[in-house]
Each structure stands twice: as C-alpha cells, then as structure tokens.
C-alpha cells in the first residue's frame, strides 16, 4: 500500500511541480516560437505517457501485492497487446518527429532577405563584424591576426576595407529583420546563445558556422557562451541590444571600418617608429625626418 501511494505521489508530484514551477522559459524575443511549440507538444505527449505508466505500476503494486496462496498468472506473451502498444508508440513518435523535422527545415533554411553579420569568439570575449557599404564581408584568416588586425581580415581583399568592426562585447541588431549570424572562432569551440532567441550554434575554429533568427522584441539581452571553452567559459558574456532600425543604423554609423582602424594603427605604428628613431638618432636628426 505504502509503495503504491508513494508511486502515485511521485506521478502527481511531478505534474504539480511542472505546473507550479516558477522556472520556465525565459520570455521569447525572436521568431522561434515554433521551437517552444515543439517543446510544449513533447511535454504533453510524453507527460501523459509518464503519468500513465507510473499510475499503472502503482495500481499493479497495490492490486497484485503478495498474498499467501495467490498465484501469478502465466501468460508468456500476448501478441495482440504487444503489437497494439508498438503501433500506438510508433504513432506517438511520428507525432513528435513530424513537427520537429518541419521546424528544423525552417531552422536550416536562411531567408533570402536575411542580413549577415559576423560573431567572432575567442577566449573569453566576443566581438562582431558587419559588412560595410558593399554589403559583403571580406575574407579572413587566422594567419592575418595581429595586434593591429585582431579580426584577421585579409588586408588585400577590397571587400574587407569597409567592414565595420566592433571590438566590444555589445552588439546591436535591428528589430524584425531576419539576421544570419555567421560564427567564427579564432581559438577553441564556443557557442553563441541568447536564451530569449532560442537559437544557438557552436563556433568552430577552422570553419564558419551559422544560424538565423529574427529579433521580435526590443530590449537588451545577455549573450552567453554555451560551449565549454576553458577556465574562463562562464565569464564569456556579451549583450545584444535589439532596437528600431534607425537607432541601429545610428549606432552602426559610429563604429570604425577596417580601413579606418588600419590607418589608425599605421599612424600609431609610425608614431612608435618615430619615437624609436628619436632614441637612436637624437632630437636634431629626428626633426629633419619629419615632413
């Protein structure tokens, strides 16, 4: 009796906890409501099965508990019942899989009109790159990376020059515009995830990965790294600000392009070498090298 009651309590307790739990989805802020729907559907189908099985066990434990002189039934198999159960389970599984695959098809199909931008991950910070006026991101390679060129862009690629570089963990995105997140890591695996967007993908060094999402709610959201990337993994954070397109444009305007940052760097470098020259040649000669 006690055991049967405990089993019932486990089933009921689980359901009660499910409905009363204060821990639930963080309110969504993207187009991926369909992902939440698949999860909800799965909760319903599997929840019913779970409760049914545990209650059935409780019933058996109570009804068929040991009694002196009682004998268990001897029925090695029951083909009909077994096929029925197999059939029903198959139907349930198809009911889960079909919507799952349907939504996955949307997940892997990036809309034509999506605007691309790049997320760059490295231990343990985020940075971002937007295509400039030409709308195309320039090529990049780890071999190009230096203090002056932290993104590793190809300086000879004309497409790189107007790329907008954001060396900061905060990025802005326009509201209601599908965005294709191109993901690039320069060291180890990372994973770009904004829980309110529901969509994520790993960053893998040596390749560019992607996913897409349309932000549907204005606000400031946390970006978390979701793939273990070393001791600083839990500190690898960023923020995404979703705002009206005009505000987004204004923000983007203020960010430096690759060409600008290179010029700055070059000027900086010239300043440095001038300093060195001064040291080597002395004040007087240094004065004559100045144009």
């Amino acid at each position: 009796m006690f055991v049967a009651i405990m089993l019932v309590l486990v089933a009921v307790g689980t359901v009660v906890f499910h409905f009363l739990s204060p821990w639930w989805w963080t309110p969504i802020a993207s187009n991926w409501g369909s992902i939440d729907d698949t999860v909800t559907l799965t909760f319903w189908i599997t929840g019913v099965v779970f409760v049914a099985i545990v209650l059935f066990m409780a019933y058996c434990v109570f009804r068929y508990r040991y009694r002196e002189g009682r004998r268990a039934d001897y029925t090695p198999e029951n083909k009909k019942l077994e096929w029925w159960l197999t059939g029903l389970t198959t139907a349930g599984v198809v009911g889960l899989l079909a919507p799952g695959l349907f939504v996955w098809n949307q997940y892997v199909t990036v809309p034509e009109e999506a605007h691309e931008f790049e997320v760059v991950g490295q231990q343990w910070q985020w940075s971002y790159r937007f295509p400039g006026a030409d709308g195309v991101l320039g090529t990049s390679a780890p071999q190009n990376i230096s203090d002056d060129n932290p993104f590793g862009l190809n300086p000879d690629d004309p497409n790189s020059q107007d790329d907008i570089l954001i060396e900061d963990d905060e990025v802005h995105l326009p509201l209601h515009k599908p965005a294709k997140f191109l993901l690039r890591s320069i060291d180890v695996l990372h994973d770009f995830y904004v829980p309110q967007f529901r969509a994520k993908m790993d960053l893998v060094p040596g390749m560019v990965t992607f996913f897409w999402a349309t932000p549907t709610r204005a606000g400031t959201f946390d970006i978390l790294c979701f793939e273990l990337c070393g001791v600083g993994h839990h500190t690898m954070r960023g923020t995404v600000v979703v705002e009206e397109e005009s505000a987004y444009r204004a923000w983007l305007q203020e960010q430096p392009t690759f060409a600008q940052s290179m010029t700055e760097a070059r000027n900086g470098a010239e300043d440095d070498s001038r300093e060195n020259l001064k040291l080597v040649l002395g004040e007087a000669e240094a004065g004559s090298t100045a144009r």
């Binding site: 999860v39 599997t46 996955w104």
Partner: peptide, 24 residues
C-alpha cells in the same frame, strides 16, 4: 520510474528542433 522520466526527456533532446534551446 526514473528510466521513463529520463527516457522521455531524451525525446526532447533527440528531436533536433527541441534540442536547439536545450542543448548544453
């Protein structure tokens, strides 16, 4: 009880779409 419980959450994680927000 625990196996059924753990098994059904496998249906979330196995069903590719539902895994996206839940993985890791």
């Amino acid at each position: 009880v625990t196996f059924v419980n753990g098994g059904i959450t496998g249906l979330f994680l196995g069903n590719v779409t539902a895994d996206v927000p839940l993985s890791d």
